[in-house]
Amino acid sequence: MATPMQPTRHLTVLYDANCPLCVHIRHWLLGQRWLVPLRLVPAGSFEAQRLFPRLDHAATLREITVIGDAGQVWTGTDAFIVCLWALAEHRPKAIWLATPAGRPFARGVMYAASAWRQAVRTGEEAACDEQCSVPG
């Protein structure tokens, strides 16, 4: 199961601050009612590197990364599900998305988001290049 198995006091979401979709989702997350507090930190930032010195910060710019207060790390589809799990209105959906029946839908959302990111990223500012992917 992709959702946290032990009590979680807070989650840190690393998002690409140069990606319009990621910034939009950040604002959306800030407007939700949280069951687990979220800390939203720009991926690759000084703060992210200070908080999580052992992470591959280049990878956090390619895919969403969520870190639990006990050091758990979720990326890609799992990170998406964990973000929904932290939200009051979306926890039941997250629990279903973590099942074998729901996981293909979560993966599809992540593939669509990855394709959209690739389509809107241009020039040298692009942090998400042809290596962008959404693992299982």
Rank of each mutant, 00 (worst) to 15 (best):
L84R: 10
H24D: 04
A17W: 04
A79M: 01
G102C: 09
W74Y: 13
Q72V: 06
R62T: 02
L84Q: 08
A88R: 15
I25G: 05
T60P: 02
M110S: 11
V73I: 15
L14S: 06
A70N: 15
L35S: 09
L97Q: 05
G71Q: 13
I64Q: 08
A17S: 15
A43E: 03
A101S: 12
V23A: 04
I81A: 02
A17Q: 05
I64G: 00
V82H: 10
D78S: 07
T8Q: 09
A58M: 10
C19I: 09
G68H: 02
A48G: 09
R33N: 08
R9G: 02
A112V: 14
A43H: 00
Y111C: 12
F46M: 12
H57P: 03
V109M: 15
Q49M: 14
P104I: 12
L21P: 07
A113E: 12
I95Q: 10
W74A: 10
W96F: 13
T77S: 12
D56M: 07
V41W: 00
A17C: 06
P7M: 09
P42I: 01
S45K: 07
A101M: 12
R103T: 09
E47T: 14
A17D: 12
V66P: 01
A58R: 14
L51H: 03
G44K: 05
A79Y: 01
V13M: 09
L55R: 09
W34P: 01
I64E: 04
A86W: 02
R62P: 00
L51Y: 04
V36F: 01
T65C: 10
F105P: 07
L97G: 06
W85C: 05
A86N: 01
Y111P: 05
D69I: 03
R62E: 12
V36P: 10
E47W: 03
V41M: 03
L61H: 03
C22P: 06
L14T: 03
L55I: 08
P92C: 01
F46Q: 15
D69F: 08
L97P: 02
W85H: 13
R62K: 10
A79F: 00
L87A: 05
F105W: 15
P42H: 02
G102L: 10
V66I: 10
D16P: 09
P104R: 00
G68R: 02
L40W: 00
R26I: 03
V109D: 10
Q32E: 14
F52Y: 04
L21H: 10
A94H: 05
C83T: 13
D69T: 08
Y111Q: 14
L30I: 06
S114N: 14
Y111H: 15
